[in-house]
Design a binder for these strands. Structure first.
Lengths: 206, 206
DNA sequence: CATTGTGAACGGGTTCACAGCA
DNA sequence: TGCTGTGAACCCGTTCACAATG
């Protein structure tokens, strides 16, 4: 059915829709129209309908979308019917905070490993994790089959570490380090950089 | 000169360019062509030239762009010639990690205040900050003239807290809470949500 | 009768291609 | 010669508008 390739910009909005639907579901909302959803998210109703129509017909004319049904369809589309294990590389304060962030486990993600190159903390316990030695990283990741890593280390070592991760079988990286990664085609990278978000906003201030 | 309104999508790329240029500058690179920059960032050379041409003529034909000069122009455009003070609301592990993140001070941002509603930690010291009582938030923020806040608290209280911040004079919010904020026009909001970034990538996995 | 799904129209962002210039 | 700056062409994402429908 879905022979055409879906624009990445549409894929990127699906998690936004899913998040909003989960909030509505938590408030026991049963049905929502594209107009209601759009108003809540600041997106046009037409865009929501068009986006969803790329994947199937999930709504009912005159009624709207069943919240729980649309949630399950979006989870299906986004491959969220399994638990995705995560490796965190970098156990500084940010890496630790993320390791203990409760939001992952409620969304089909599970932090499984935490690496850091600092000999002073290798082997020590952080929350429920024992900090692992990066020298064992290749074996650990390859062996576990983990596909997703989060990079929370200084920019200076982010590129080389990302390359090692890719060589170990990682195919998706969420990069918190403030640097552009140069990686082979087929490797998915997303960037989280608060400084860039702030700089984007300061353009409009003053 | 710049009478036309600049598309937000272009503004959002300027911090990316700036970041790359700062890395090049740190490596003592003097000049870079749009092609070199594009290759480094995975962006087309034409796009970089077109984006920059919205703001002026910063390059030299046959040579490229002076790295330090382009950095200073971009900082100018993005209003980074002043220190922007930040308030963090929510002193959980994420808020604490961000409060001590060294990347801000090297980029014209300075965390000035840290709020949390937990009576057990109000008044306690976290790094160089004393956790402040949210009841004093309106006074503190209005008094200091802080314009930017970072929200690092649970989704359940993010909306009401954001509204309070806006009433206190905040006009830009970097929201780490996993929820869409509904705020008046003119308030700038950027979202950081690792779960959504991960879900975006899992679409392409398996 | 309200709302979906969708072709068509629209608009705007990206790429192209080249004149202009150091 | 090499690279910028930029109008024009192109492409793609968004909005429009309405037939279809529970």
């Amino acid at each position: 059915m879905e022979q055409t390739i879906i624009p990445d910009i549409i894929v990127g909005r699906l998690p936004v829709y899913l998040n909003m639907l989960q909030h509505l579901s938590a408030e026991n909302v049963q049905v929502a129209s594209s107009k209601e959803l759009g108003d809540l998210m600041g997106i046009s109703a037409a865009q929501i309908r068009k986006d969803l129509s790329q994947f199937g017909e999930f709504g009912k004319q005159g009624r709207g979308y069943s919240v729980v049904y649309l949630i399950s369809e979006l989870q299906n589309i986004l491959n969220l019917n399994q638990v995705w294990e995560l490796a965190i590389v970098g156990a500084g304060s940010l890496g630790r905070a993320i390791a203990n962030y409760p939001g992952f486990k409620h969304n089909c993600f599970k932090v499984s490993m935490l690496f850091d190159s600092d000999p002073k903390i290798i082997g020590s316990r952080i929350g429920e994790f024992v900090v692992k030695n990066p020298e064992t990283m290749d074996f650990e990741i390859r062996n576990s089959g983990i596909k997703i890593a989060m990079l929370t280390l200084p920019a200076s070592v982010a590129q080389e570490t990302a390359e090692k991760l890719v060589n170990s079988g990682i195919i998706a990286i969420l990069n918190y380090a403030p640097i552009s990664l140069k990686l082979p085609n087929g490797i998915h990278v997303q960037y989280l950089n608060p400084v860039q978000n702030l700089q984007h906003m300061t353009y409009y201030l003053k």
